[in-house]
Simulated assay, not measured.
Amino acid sequence: MSKIVVPIKIKSDRKTTDDLGATLRACNAAANYISTVAWESREFAKFGIHRLTYAKVKEEFGLGAQAAVRTIAKVADAYNSGDRKFRRTRKRRFSWSSAQPFDARNMSWNLEDKTLSIWTINGRAKSVPFLCADWQLELLRHNPIAESDLVFRKGSFYVYATIDVADEAMNESPKGFLGVDMGIVNVATLSDGTNFSGKHLNHVRNRNMGLRRKLQKKGTRSAKRLLVKRSGREARFAKDTNHCISKKIVTKAKRTGHGIALEDLEGIRNRARLRKPQRVALNSWGFYQLGSFVQYKAIRVGVPVVYVDPAYTSQQCSGCGHIDKKNRPNQATFLCTSCGLSLPADWNAAINIAKRGSDSWVVSHATERDTGEAA
């Protein structure tokens, strides 16, 4: 099963909007109280926090039973999730608009009428209309809704519904692997030669960067308002582009019976030695996001994904395996000093990634077979 988050925009009257705002404020005020108790008592287990705070949260903050339970769980999750090195190292604080979780006990859906019923601090709001695309509505209709978060974003309320979607059976015998090389000039290049150019993306990124600099330098109130209005626009553009590219990659792999081999980009920002303009591009594009989009889309349709070490993929000849810095006479070209193979550099790297993906798959599945036979 895969979990997918479907954002739904609430279309409500003034009273419902005020009630939802008051609900977020009350729940997050309670969350800050719960966090203080947990921090001072060093009690971070959900049931332990519940024992210390449940009664007072209901009494002082006016939360219903289920809202109190979900708020306690939210605080416990904040202390117990994420990187183990950073858990419980600082007190968690919640802004008034931090997302508040709901479940079937305090939120219900009428998908035919496109309305929902939701608990608020001032009573239950019923038949609240919402807006969504047809494909989002179909997802909600045909898949169980696990949990939902009430979110306030840029003047509007949203419900982020988490649904469980059944995955297709994994292809355990792929015909090969489609290698994906990610870069700055070309966002992604595949081992079959398909190229997703970054020319337009870099143009948009540079234009946005220049506009931000002008507005920041101007410093007027109107300039600051425009900066706020434009905030997130580039992130949304990058996200949409990464969704489109990842969908095409996964569709091609599914159609041809291949798996997908991706570079393990952990720590790429620390390893890379680039000039300042390239560093800016590296840090402003979501390479990790693109990889994660490919992975979750692939899992949903049964396409295997492996991550490989990207070391020397740009310097290694995909024909003879010779590794040499001199194999890259310039950024765009690969020319092997040993066998003379000449290819676009990104394509050569993608072929190497595909080969490493196939080798990794063979080794891992050979280990699984050996373990099974031994058992």
Rank of each mutant, 00 (worst) to 15 (best):
residue 149 D to R: 10
residue 159 V to K: 01
residue 190 L to C: 05
residue 144 P to K: 02
residue 242 N to R: 00
residue 182 M to G: 05
residue 172 E to K: 13
residue 188 A to M: 04
residue 195 N to F: 00
residue 156 S to N: 15
residue 238 A to Q: 09
residue 186 N to T: 07
residue 155 G to V: 05
residue 185 V to I: 08
residue 140 L to Y: 01
residue 151 V to I: 10
residue 247 K to T: 14
residue 193 G to F: 10
residue 204 V to E: 10
residue 226 L to T: 13
residue 157 F to K: 00
residue 197 S to C: 07
residue 239 K to P: 11
residue 243 H to D: 14
residue 171 N to M: 03
residue 152 F to K: 11
residue 174 P to V: 05
residue 238 A to V: 07
residue 188 A to V: 02
residue 248 K to D: 08
residue 245 I to K: 01
residue 227 L to G: 07
residue 194 T to K: 06
residue 174 P to L: 07
residue 229 K to L: 11
residue 201 L to S: 09
residue 170 M to I: 13
residue 232 G to A: 04
residue 234 E to R: 11
residue 173 S to C: 13
residue 190 L to F: 05
residue 247 K to F: 11
residue 221 R to T: 13
residue 145 I to K: 01
residue 203 H to V: 09
residue 207 R to P: 02
residue 206 N to S: 14
residue 203 H to W: 14
residue 160 Y to R: 05
residue 217 K to Q: 14
residue 238 A to W: 05
residue 190 L to D: 06
residue 215 L to Q: 10
residue 241 T to I: 12
residue 183 G to I: 06
residue 227 L to E: 03
residue 206 N to T: 15
residue 234 E to W: 07
residue 159 V to C: 01
residue 165 V to P: 00
residue 196 F to V: 12
residue 167 D to F: 03
residue 150 L to I: 04
residue 141 R to S: 01
residue 183 G to W: 00
residue 215 L to Y: 05
residue 181 D to E: 10
residue 184 I to K: 04
residue 183 G to M: 04
residue 172 E to L: 15
residue 143 N to Y: 00
residue 170 M to A: 15
residue 201 L to Q: 08
residue 227 L to F: 07
residue 203 H to C: 04
residue 217 K to P: 00
residue 145 I to Q: 01
residue 224 K to C: 09
residue 162 T to I: 02
residue 217 K to R: 13
residue 141 R to N: 01
residue 211 L to R: 13
residue 155 G to K: 01
residue 208 N to C: 08
residue 155 G to D: 03
residue 169 A to F: 06
residue 169 A to G: 13
residue 236 R to V: 00
residue 242 N to G: 05
residue 221 R to E: 12
residue 144 P to G: 00
residue 235 A to P: 08
residue 175 K to H: 14
residue 156 S to K: 02
residue 152 F to I: 00
residue 247 K to D: 08
residue 152 F to Q: 09
residue 234 E to Q: 09
residue 150 L to F: 01
residue 181 D to P: 02
residue 245 I to D: 06
residue 169 A to T: 15
residue 170 M to D: 09
residue 147 E to F: 03
residue 139 L to K: 02
residue 140 L to W: 02
residue 159 V to F: 02
residue 180 V to H: 03
residue 239 K to N: 14
residue 213 R to H: 11
residue 216 Q to G: 09
residue 239 K to C: 09
residue 147 E to K: 08
residue 179 G to C: 08
residue 196 F to Y: 12
residue 162 T to V: 10
residue 206 N to D: 12
residue 223 A to Y: 03
residue 225 R to Y: 11
residue 247 K to H: 13
residue 225 R to D: 12
residue 149 D to G: 01
residue 244 C to Q: 13
residue 226 L to F: 10
residue 150 L to K: 05
residue 233 R to L: 15
residue 230 R to D: 08
residue 186 N to E: 10
residue 226 L to M: 14
residue 179 G to Y: 05
residue 155 G to S: 05
residue 180 V to D: 02
residue 173 S to I: 06
residue 165 V to A: 01
residue 196 F to N: 09
residue 247 K to R: 15
residue 245 I to A: 07
residue 178 L to M: 09
residue 226 L to P: 05
residue 207 R to E: 11
residue 218 K to S: 07
residue 241 T to D: 02
residue 179 G to D: 06
residue 209 M to W: 09
residue 234 E to N: 03
residue 140 L to R: 00
residue 192 D to P: 04
residue 223 A to G: 08
